[in-house]
Nucleic acid binder design. Structure first.
Lengths: 122, 122
DNA sequence: GATACTGTATTATCAAACTAATACACTGGA
DNA sequence: TCCAGTGTATTAGTTTGATAATACAGTATC
């Protein structure tokens, strides 16, 4: 797993995003056990407490479940994963629309910008 | 001017965005004098230093110019404003594409999401 | 039972960022 | 000259984040 943090935003928040993305894209499959706090912390070159902080926050979204001392597991309920994914997508889309609107750009125009930029980079 | 701040991000950064948007959308027209630090600070219910911090950071983009003790003015150079606007749009678009890509969404799919969400809200 | 591995909790410390209070320097105009 | 209004500088206080060291409780395995 590639850990890359930019300053400006708390590391633990960026860790949350990394792991959430890993779950939503199947890097951590449903029902699978994820590495231990200490293992992940060592991998990310981060203090175990920081990693723990991120994981505990993430559990509020129900994507991760702690099984006592057995470790942490990704939820087996694919509906939960889909719901989280849809919610994230919806939030992201609304956020984009809002930011574009602040600059006087309509959703239609924004969509065109995405298409053009996507082509150019491709 | 409507000042609305959310926590989690520094107030001065949010002020920067507010004012930059005001310049790029013509609320503060090119060449016009903007309110004084203390005036803006009182309006935003913020410490004058916080406002000053935001304004000084913003000057690095050349959108604002300090005229000694006469006050601050929006640049008269519309090319600078256009360039800043285009840069902001480009950054925003790339940021969106990146975030969607992290969820396995192509720019084309993202564009569709924007269109659908735009319609639904309209 | 002993060991090693889980997650968790507590406390302390350090650094950085943000906000705030105050004082300073300059200019325009009455 | 004096006053009011600019932007600016300095300093301090508060908060937040990250790290660190330790300790605790439970489980699987040998």
């Amino acid at each position: 797993m590639v850990w890359k943090f930019s300053d400006g935003r708390p590391v633990y928040v960026q860790i949350m995003e990394h792991i959430q993305t890993a779950v939503l894209t199947g890097i951590f499959p449903p029902g699978s056990k994820i590495p231990s706090v200490r293992e992940l912390a060592a991998d990310a070159k981060v203090n175990p407490n920081t990693m723990q902080h991120a994981l505990q926050e993430l559990e509020q979204s129900m994507l991760l479940i702690t099984q006592g001392t057995l470790g942490r597991f990704v939820t087996q309920d694919s509906a939960v994963i889909d719901a989280a994914r849809n919610k994230l997508l919806h939030n992201l889309t609304q956020e984009c629309i809002k930011k574009y609107a602040a600059l006087g750009i309509s959703p239609e125009q924004a969509a065109n910008l995405l298409l053009e930029c996507g082509k150019r980079e491709a």
